[in-house]
Simulated scan of single mutants.
Amino acid sequence: MTLSASDTATTPAPAEERAVLTVSDLTVVYEVDEPVVAVKNVSLTLAPGEILGLAGESGCGKTTLAYAINRLHKPPARISSGSVLFHDRDGSHLDLLALEDEDLRMFRWSKLSMVFQGAMNALNPVTTIRAQLEDVLTTHRPGMSRGDRRALAGDVLERVGVDRARLGSFAHELSGGMRQRVMIAMALLLEPQVMIMDEPTTALDVVVQRDILREIVRLRDELNFAVIFITHDLPLLLEMSDRIAIMLAGEIVELAPAAEIYRSPKHPYTRRLLGAFPSLTGARGDFIRTGVTDDRTEDR
């Protein structure tokens, strides 16, 4: 029997008063000749400091959802219904779908930032890393002196494991892993409460990927920002997420703690995703965060 999204057991979301982001019944439509519903009635609640993984196959709506939350979607994409509420540390609430241009521009990076999939495409190829980091500070903290901007840019760069001497470098002079760290530094520059990461390690080799994932978890623990981490790589999410949402054809079909997703997946699609990677054999190393071990039977 195939389960529908409504049949699937989910973990209750954190209480709203503790939430930093609440997405309710969000629907995104691509207005083409025959309108396509790319995201359908998606609801998510993100707690402060939580890492929420979002997994699913290519084309399932993960990136569309991320762009809609951050209001980065462009025509023909249109949010047709739902709400996105941001709950600030001071107790105030912002309806992100109601923000106008200037308010929205100032909200991004300072409260909610995004790390994109291709750092080489996201970074400006003709300006230095210093200029790009300082540009964020000039926009959002216009009263900061030039010396303070430079000092903060260097401090944040070193916080993500890149020597401040690289501030004078251009994107093409950095390795893939370093470019991605620069993107993370830019996203952290104003100490936002939420960071959305859209497949930030896809193009990196597994060693660099793991180093960056460890860095993200360390920074989250240190700065207490929440993360929505988007990828089609479910094993990766099992290593670092508190909860995981499984997306299929624009809908969330399962939402549960990472360990529960691993040991007792409810939806057939989740089970197929888990079955798409082999059981681990030999010595069992610790996962980054959840401590999940591979105890599946060999005949799975």
Score class of each variant (00 low, 15 high):
108 R>P: 06
253 V>L: 02
29 V>R: 12
47 A>L: 10
92 S>P: 08
212 I>Y: 05
112 L>Q: 11
117 Q>S: 14
79 I>H: 01
124 N>W: 05
89 R>W: 05
120 M>I: 07
45 T>A: 12
124 N>R: 03
168 G>C: 10
283 A>F: 15
221 D>V: 14
159 R>S: 03
21 L>F: 10
43 S>H: 02
181 R>C: 04
13 A>T: 14
116 F>D: 12
178 M>T: 12
297 T>M: 13
94 L>G: 14
280 L>I: 12
289 R>N: 05
113 S>K: 07
215 E>N: 04
187 A>G: 04
35 P>I: 10
143 G>I: 02
238 L>Y: 11
148 D>L: 04
180 Q>T: 03
158 E>P: 06
191 E>H: 12
5 A>N: 04
121 N>G: 14
98 A>D: 05
220 R>H: 04
86 F>D: 00
234 L>Y: 11
78 R>L: 11
9 A>S: 07
127 T>D: 10
218 R>P: 14
166 R>K: 09
76 P>G: 08
257 P>E: 00
74 K>C: 13
69 I>K: 01
223 L>R: 02
199 E>R: 07
64 T>C: 06
16 E>F: 12
123 L>M: 11
242 D>E: 03
279 S>H: 15
127 T>H: 09
285 G>E: 11
128 T>N: 02
182 V>K: 00
189 L>I: 03
150 R>F: 08
249 A>M: 10
11 T>V: 15
